[in-house]
Write a protein that binds this DNA or RNA. Sequence first.
DNA 1: ATAAAGAGTACTAGAACAGTACTATTTCAT
DNA 2: ATGAAATAGTACTGTTCTAGTACTCTTTAT
Lengths: 160, 160
Amino acid sequence: MIRLGKLTDYGLVLMSQIARRPAAEMHTARDLAVECHLPLPTVSKLLKKLLHSGLLTSHRGIKGGYNLARESQLISLAEIIAALEGPLALTECSMEITGLCDLESLCPIKDNQRIISQVIRGALEKVTLSDLIRPMRLTAIRDQKGNLVPTVSVASGRMQ
Amino acid sequence: MIRLGKLTDYGLVLMSQIARRPAAEMHTARDLAVECHLPLPTVSKLLKKLLHSGLLTSHRGIKGGYNLARESQLISLAEIIAALEGPLALTECSMEITGLCDLESLCPIKDNQRIISQVIRGALEKVTLSDLIRPMRLTAIRDQKGNLVPTVSVASGRMQ
DNA sequence: ATAAAGAGTACTAGAACAGTACTATTTCAT
DNA sequence: ATGAAATAGTACTGTTCTAGTACTCTTTAT
């Protein structure tokens, strides 16, 4: 079951906002709430989740706040989403992967859900937080059938 | 807002089941329900949706049934999912793409949701129904950080 | 000591999904 | 012609889960 809810979107907005500022700066939940136009309790809750997943560091007390645990280029969208939505439906199968699929064994998939999760996950692994905050170029190409296919290309030239 | 619910999964199972059989065969909702172990009313509802989206053809009356509207290689997962979940959150931006982004104009994205939708959509566009029914090879590679990254490679050698 | 910030828990209202039932319409076979 | 089997369409309902909110405790710098 794959899902990107409103809260996850908020979480991404928050992470982007933190990433946009200099790395040394601390960010309080209150400030982030104002900057992102989100209710404070919601922001608090999200930041806590992101903290527990190891994507943020926190400092308590006055002059406290949150900051990125790693550089933004090292944080993938898949990680952020997993932190907020729970493991991206790769629960059971990822267990098997470590044991079986490393050996290129054939996987008798009956659940399509797994394939799809992995395709999506693969795509999200490739996009990092830093890709999200820099302006991206949106191009539309036509496939062999003549349909418009939107393509997201990052400034660095990497293709998704 | 991206979501793959239970019903969408059922829909994919149904499409796979139809695609697995010879193209000439007709498939009644009743048969598919039995074969896929799903309740008949649910199957009916899903098939109707898929029909309206142009992914299936139908024939009424006794000896009626459903069939694929196109060959399975020409039906992408994105299409099936869009048929069952509604347009994959690419509502507004895809409109703009036709006009602006074709010209490689810079897109001042404030909603991350759009980027993500497009990344995911791009990934799902590449996988077809025929990819889904043939056995796939699941491999796990390690990235530069040492994390396991599951990768789905199709028998044809195409990479996702 | 105090004020400001994060940490943790619990509760509530609302929406959306999933499932079901019922009826009409079409078509082939007898 | 008639009946059976199939799709087509609509409406309803219960349950689950999300989103939002409130309150209290702990930590830390001034």
